[in-house]
């Protein structure tokens, strides 16, 4: 038995027919074709599948697609149109991206942090990203990038 649902992703409506057990992650990647959201573990442990649901970061592998009905979903593809968002700019500039598989999740988590807390301390940053795993960078440059992103946003380089 499949159900018809409508979900809003990056401001666009999508009508999809899904099994009630299909995760939001699989629908985003497989049915809608937004592959910027990554699958690292499928169990909510790595944060690679982080998307924003009504502005809050969630693990899309732990949500069923049907639960996303009526919610606004933002994926990495929807963060900025055309130019890079200052958070993305900072991740690039600071060398916070190596293999890049975890990067969309980290960037969206950082975006959500800076939205509610524009001047986070290092401690607040580590708390915010403690649910995201990176195996390449050793995190130091990711923390630096988020501090840098906060400055970039303050400087009016971009708007969250």
């Amino acid at each position: 038995m499949k159900v018809n649902i409508k979900i809003m992703v990056n401001g666009d409506p999508y009508f999809v027919q899904v099994s009630p057990f299909r995760t939001l992650l699989d629908v985003l990647r497989e049915d809608i074709g937004l592959t910027g959201t990554k699958k690292g573990c499928g169990e909510g442990e790595c944060g690679a599948c982080t998307v924003l649901m009504d502005g809050k970061p969630v693990n899309s592998c732990l949500f069923l697609a049907v639960q996303a009905e009526g919610k606004e979903i933002t994926t990495i593809e929807g963060l900025a149109a055309g130019n890079l968002h200052p958070v993305q700019e900072a991740f690039v500039a600071k060398g916070a991206i190596q293999c890049g598989y975890c990067s969309p999740g980290f960037i969206l988590t950082a975006w959500a942090l800076l939205k509610t807390n524009p001047h986070p301390t290092e401690e607040e940053i580590t708390t915010a990203i403690s649910g995201n795993i990176c195996r390449c960078t050793g995190y130091q440059k990711i923390v630096e990038a988020i501090l840098d992103a906060a400055q970039r946003l303050q400087g009016g380089v971009g708007n969250v």
């Binding site: 937004l34 910027g36 990495i76 593809e77 963060l79 293999c99």
Partner: peptide
């Protein structure tokens, strides 16, 4: 390739 990795492309 950091830019395309940062945008999900």
């Amino acid at each position: 390739d950091a830019v395309e990795k940062s945008t999900g492309a």
